[in-house]
Design a protein around this nucleic acid. Structure first.
Lengths: 168, 168
DNA sequence: TCAAATATTCAGTTTGAAATGAACTGGGAT
DNA sequence: ATCCCAGTTCATTTCAAACTGAATATTTGA
């Protein structure tokens, strides 16, 4: 059978699920994230399990994962015992931070390799060095992007952002 | 038993294998890439299958994948019938291109969603718009980084690069 | 303190991708 | 033309991660 791909909102949620897998997140985490981008929340675990048709266990696990990543936040709803989650106000700086951490790990691996790579000849040294430079630049670039989405300093970047092309 | 984690070079190759999985590539593709970063090549398929202890089929498939991504190049070795691969001179621009394509796909999903998201309320519209802006900036940022590693225009960027901090 | 409601953990199952071996294809050399 | 060698493709197996249901823990309210 397969769920209705008709509804554009649902389709988007599924697309996000697929996309999530591509960068190493569980599919359900992606679907959750997609759902919250559209619907915002707050929503309870049971509610989410219901609408996304997955077990409450999976929702619990993946919601906490997204909370960890800064995408979701737990909020209290007055008079309710359940936990509620909602889309974080500005998850983007956090997301970039995770990304930078991954890049940094790779750079570390390359750096640890450096003292031993001369065994493999002088070309090896320059190949590794070139790759280190690539990761270094990639990290700088992402960090710079991070500041643009950092709540702590939004006013400073505002002017610079306004110079860039507006989206439709 | 598990292979020798003792040798720093081999360890690095394995680390690269793990890292590859994190961004959606097969482990063997990562190990191949790691091996070529260190050893450069050219190396034949059988040679690679031997040293990495995997089937020739896997090597074939994954080497072609990496060729597709611009990480490896096929080269002819005079007097040899086998195919040889070597690490591409400058794979970085290509790698970024693939990355940008992935980001662009997500941006497209968000754009397709736009005309329908008002069903979910005004907050939904601004959430989606905010995310679109994030992806748009991320793409711009990666594209700009790309030009720094693009063979076609290395001289133009050289001066700008020299302003940035040098690596140890 | 107990009972009810909810969240988390965990062992087991399912699933899908990755890896393999074997069959197939193609391209030279003899 | 045929044999050989290397690469690719494909059906099958393997394996790791995701997901689930049930058990456990935790929290809240009486």
């Amino acid at each position: 059978m397969g769920k209705s791909l008709q509804n554009p909102l649902d389709r988007f949620v599924e697309q996000f699920g697929i996309a999530a897998k591509q960068d190493g997140l569980p599919r359900i985490a992606g679907r959750l994230m997609g759902w919250f981008v559209v619907h915002g929340g707050p929503a309870s675990l049971s509610e989410l399990a219901d609408t996304l048709h997955v077990s409450r266990a999976s929702i619990s696990t993946n919601a906490r994962l997204l909370e960890q990543l800064g995408v979701l936040e737990r909020v209290a709803v007055p008079g309710e015992r359940q936990d509620f989650y909602r889309f974080a106000e500005n998850p983007y700086a956090r997301l970039l931070e995770s990304h930078v951490e991954r890049l940094q790990t790779r750079l570390d691996h390359l750096t640890q390799l450096m003292p031993h790579v001369d065994e493999a000849g002088p070309d090896a040294v320059s190949r590794v060095q070139a790759m280190r430079e690539f990761y270094d630049q990639a990290i700088s670039s992402s960090e710079s992007l991070m500041t643009q989405f950092d709540d702590a300093a939004p006013r400073i970047m505002r002017a610079a952002n306004e110079d860039r092309a507006n989206l439709g």
